[in-house]
Design a protein around this nucleic acid. Structure first.
Length: 296
DNA sequence: AATACGAGCAACCGCCACTGG
DNA sequence: GCCAGTGGCGGTTGCTCGTAT
């Protein structure tokens, strides 16, 4: 005997949703919450499969959804997350507030894939397309081990790379750059830890053994405006905030950096104040703090 | 103006994981 | 441990709309 279908196929409507159906579904969920999807259609007076209702709600009707094309920043996030997670669209979507797995999957297949190919990057391996470099599929076929990226926490790699970059460029605002970068990175680190209230194992290096770092430093470094706070306009400050919006709230978290430096909410408030208000005193303090960290 | 074609996206399908009995 | 029910995920399909011929 085969598996029972998720719903009775007879008398179940398929295809695009009408405005009337949407209204019924929204009204029901707003009044009753998301209960058992299987029984929802009957209770809501819909001739739809429960699965179809869930999909319609999560992908289209949910009030917290962002509409419209993905921004350039979101696109960069998707590419970076895909490089590390593969086709785990729901995981990727969970890091982009207001975006659904379906939306990201569609955007990937219709836009990003082509873009990467045009740039000479293999959308599967995220490596330059060269004739002598087999892609992951080919490696699997040949039973070759897939080359793993070196494991590093985002903060570790961020500090290392930003330091290197700053040294190369003689950047006098290294502290500022790092501050903004670290906020973004730290928030993303917290975000994987928080996901689905999952307890994530951490090894001796403070590295999560279940997940891999989600953001590489080159992706999270904020635009150059933030590196020159003395000339930054309110517009560029807004840009920073806008870019940070998809990340989880600052509330109730702290981040232990290497060497046991603990950052509380107030520290980040100061940093944000600094980023927004160009407070030179705080700027100096932060830069000194980072100089100390970087000396290690 | 008619037709063909391709891109974009909403929706569906089948499989898998999880949970409770 | 087994099984059925359920939700969720990723791959795929098919419809709609815009553009090219």
């Amino acid at each position: 005997m085969g598996r029972q279908p998720c719903c009775d196929k007879n008398g179940v409507k398929k295809g695009p949703w009408s405005a009337e159906e949407d209204k019924k579904l929204i009204n029901f969920i707003l009044n009753n919450g998301q209960c058992c999807w299987r029984s929802l259609p009957k209770l809501a007076g819909l001739l739809r499969c429960g699965k179809s209702c869930r999909l319609r709600w999560t992908n289209y009707l949910r009030p917290d959804l962002k509409r419209g094309l993905l921004s350039e920043y979101e696109e960069k996030m998707v590419i970076d997350l895909h490089a590390q997670l593969g086709n785990r669209w729901s995981k990727i979507a969970s890091h982009l507030h207001g975006r659904t797995d379906n939306e990201i999957k569609n955007h990937w297949n219709t836009h990003i894939k082509k873009k990467l190919k045009k740039m000479g990057i293999d959308p599967v391996t995220h490596k330059p397309i060269t004739s002598d470099q087999p892609n992951i599929d080919q490696q699997l076929i040949k039973n070759q081990p897939i080359i793993q990226q070196e494991k590093q926490t985002p903060i570790e790699s961020t500090i290392r790379e930003t330091k290197l970059e700053a040294e190369q460029e003689g950047n006098k605002n290294m502290g500022t750059t790092l501050t903004t970068t670290i906020i973004t990175t730290a928030r993303s680190e917290i975000s994987w830890g928080r996901q689905e209230n999952k307890n994530i194992e951490v090894n001796n290096n403070g590295f999560c053994t279940d997940e891999v770092p989600l953001i590489s430093p080159n992706e999270i470094l904020v635009p150059s405006e933030s590196t020159t706070p003395s000339t930054s306009s309110s517009q560029s400050s807004n840009m920073i905030l806008e870019d940070l919006q998809f990340l989880p709230s600052f509330d109730n978290w702290q981040c232990d950096f290497n060497r046991g430096t603990s950052w509380e909410n107030d520290d980040f408030s100061s940093i944000l104040d600094y980023l927004l208000n160009d407070d030179s005193d705080i700027s100096n303090t932060i830069s000194q703090d980072w100089s100390q960290i970087l000396e290690v």
